[in-house]
Write a protein that binds this DNA or RNA. Structure first.
Length: 290
DNA sequence: AGTATCCCCTGAGCGC
DNA sequence: TGCGCTCAGGGGATAC
């Protein structure tokens, strides 16, 4: 089985759409917690989580960056982060449990379950209340625990000029800044490298050494590269993932630099190099991104 | 307050 | 065959 890349914004959005399609309007009548680590961010613990979810109807879904959530008719929000290896699967109630099933949500209609499956348990779900006050965007409820997460480039309220300013106030390497979810959300290691390649920028350049137009262009590339992935249906799910129409999702990836060490740069043919940065791999073209 | 570092976790891949 | 090491990395916590 091919390794699934870590879910970033496009993959999370694909999951949100699938979950929205399958679960809005349905009433939860069973919640089974199979691994405590999956709900570690729920303040009240497992019993409280179950008590508050039972009988609730899923009214809507929303997303910011790599977090998404189900809006319940109780006004509470069931927040999901897929972490490194998480999936939220839509599965027939009778189907065999996955090896890494962490939480099962069953519905009163006995239709398909939502299953939170996560091999490495970096992901999780928790119930939260909407943040009060002006930080809520456009009247859309925002979970209080993720109020520190910045708008992502697809949010109608995303302001490229303001984010450009915020980026240019930082002295850290540009890659660290666009990975910082409190500056701009949704970008992970893969799309950071792809965006920097499109913008012809070296990841190590201090953010405050870049002109505003360069930063603005980089943010545009980040949105473009994620939009391309979204159009292709996301890139993170292998044949185990059952998506919106019940068919398996398997998406071909066309990445210019990420994971392409030694292969020719699609722009100039120079072999792509891999470097270590903050304990992670970074890929770049040594000629295009000096 | 911004920045750097550590830690959480499991399974694949690889050298010996 | 098996053992131990490295790697994958989001993001919260912590120290400076």
């Amino acid at each position: 089985m091919a390794r699934r890349p870590v879910p970033e914004l496009p993959e999370v959005e694909v999951v949100r759409r699938g979950v929205d399609h399958w679960s809005v309007g349905r009433v939860m009548d069973q919640v089974q917690i199979r691994h405590p680590r999956a709900i570690r961010r729920h303040a009240g613990g497992g019993g409280d989580l179950v008590d508050r979810m039972l009988g609730a109807t899923i009214a809507a879904t929303d997303r910011r960056g790599k977090y998404f959530w189900l809006v319940l008719d109780t006004r509470e929000l069931l927040v999901v982060h897929l972490g490194m290896s998480g999936q939220l699967l839509v599965q027939p109630a009778a189907s065999t449990d996955e090896a890494h099933l962490r939480v099962r949500l069953s519905f009163a209609d006995d239709g398909p379950e939502l299953r939170f499956v996560d091999q490495r348990t970096f992901g999780g779900i928790f119930l939260d209340v909407p943040e009060d006050g002006p930080a809520s965007t456009d009247g859309r409820p925002l979970p209080s625990l993720i109020s520190h997460i910045a708008l992502d480039p697809f949010d109608p309220l995303f302001n490229p000029a303001a984010v450009t300013k915020a980026v240019r106030r930082r002295s850290a390497p540009i890659k660290a800044v666009i990975l910082d979810q409190s500056v701009v959300s949704g970008i992970g290691n893969i799309y950071a490298d792809e965006s920097l390649w499109r913008a012809k920028l070296n990841w190590a350049i201090p953010a405050d050494a870049l002109s505003a137009p360069r930063v603005r262009a980089l943010l545009g590339h980040a949105k473009d590269v994620m939009a391309d992935s979204l159009a292709a249906g996301g890139t993170s799910f292998d044949s185990l993932y059952v998506n919106v129409n019940g068919s398996s999702g398997h998406f071909s990836r066309s990445l210019a630099v990420y994971g392409q060490e030694g292969r020719p740069c699609p722009r100039c043919g120079t072999p792509i190099i891999r470097e270590r940065f903050a304990g992670r791999s970074s890929f770049r073209c040594p000629k295009c991104q000096k």
